[in-house]
Nucleic acid binder design. Structure first.
Lengths: 179, 179
DNA sequence: CTGTCTATGTAGCGGTTGCTACATGCAGTG
DNA sequence: CACTGCATGTAGCAACCGCTACATAGACAG
């Protein structure tokens, strides 16, 4: 079991970094391999084929995303749903999260199109985010589970509108809906 | 100006049909041309290059989408925001709209990634949808503009969660948020 | 030492990509 | 008729795609 210096496990972080930078769908073996310091020949050797590589990569990225969320838990909890919503939204605008978001929309698109592996990864990431969000809800919230789901729905809608240049539309909507 | 049988205008509907079926990013000239009854040679001839073809296609599809929305205006207006939301959501689950939705997520992803032309098309489609939605608001709504934006944010969040297998999450969120 | 297995490099295959060079027919114009 | 310009077919190019065949070097077992 003592693997050499280049195994699936040592390859995945570098592959993930490349994919976060350049996208998942357009990634082809040769650039991917170059980014990981190996050859396309070895990627196929380690992962079997490209589809399996993408599946493993998605699973790995989902794990990284969860870990990032875990680390993002601040000590103080928000005191209202409104504050909770805004705090998370602001966090999503940070540069490190932006790269995740760009990839996220690609995963959503693949999920909708039925590309193998995408929907599972998306669902897992969403489930983790939901659990994390529940832990972020105000302590005195009467219905943390429902509130988290409500905030998540608004949050994802806002992020999507943001991407297509309608961030202001979402902001006005949140005001009108009084969260 | 009397064009022959195959011009940009006559080509675009067939190209759009193919793209709605098979996706936009993965579409390459030869299958596209075959679907439109011509050759890759002629697609380049008419559109200049592929990037321009995609841009024109996106613009055309945005127009078709708007027209579809216009036709979807029923005679009766909903009597509450809740009913408005649910009626539109139900409409989005119809088969014809599903193909639009799959393409929509691809456009959102391209928009996030910065692919040329995608963001403009997405913004235009969203603007049209917003205007349409305002016209769908209950007559006695105290703030139709704000309400439409609120519903749209919830709607897009719900559609996204739907795609990644978390439709139930959104549904529970809407209940908890009391719309 | 000899065989076996794993990891890796080199080279290339058949296919697809966007795009182009070239020839040609056909419509209109003088 | 000759000329011009648009529309189109045929053929192909260089680059890239995922993937594979083959050789080989090293580690380890007997």
């Amino acid at each position: 079991m003592a693997n050499s210096s280049l195994s699936r496990e040592t390859l995945l972080p570098k592959l993930a970094a490349h994919v976060l930078e350049h996208g998942l769908g357009g990634a082809s073996l040769r650039p991917l391999a170059k980014a990981a310091g190996t050859s396309d020949r070895m990627l196929i050797y380690h992962f079997g084929n490209k589809e399996q590589l993408v599946a493993d990569l998605l699973e790995y990225i989902a794990g990284v995303y969860s870990a990032a969320l875990d680390m993002a838990i601040g000590p103080e909890r928000p005191t209202s749903r409104q504050e909770c919503f805004e705090r998370i939204l602001e966090q999503g605008r940070q540069r490190t999260m932006q790269r995740f978001l760009v990839l996220w929309w690609e995963i959503v698109a693949g999920s909708a199109r039925g590309v193998p592996g995408y929907k599972n990864a998306a669902e897992q990431m969403m489930t983790n985010q939901l659990a994390w969000l529940e832990g972020q809800m105000p302590k005195d919230d009467p219905d943390p589970a429902g509130g988290a789901r409500y905030i998540m729905t608004l949050l994802e809608g806002t992020l999507m509108l943001d991407v297509v240049g309608h961030g202001e539309t979402a902001r006005q909507g949140i005001v009108a809906g009084q969260l």
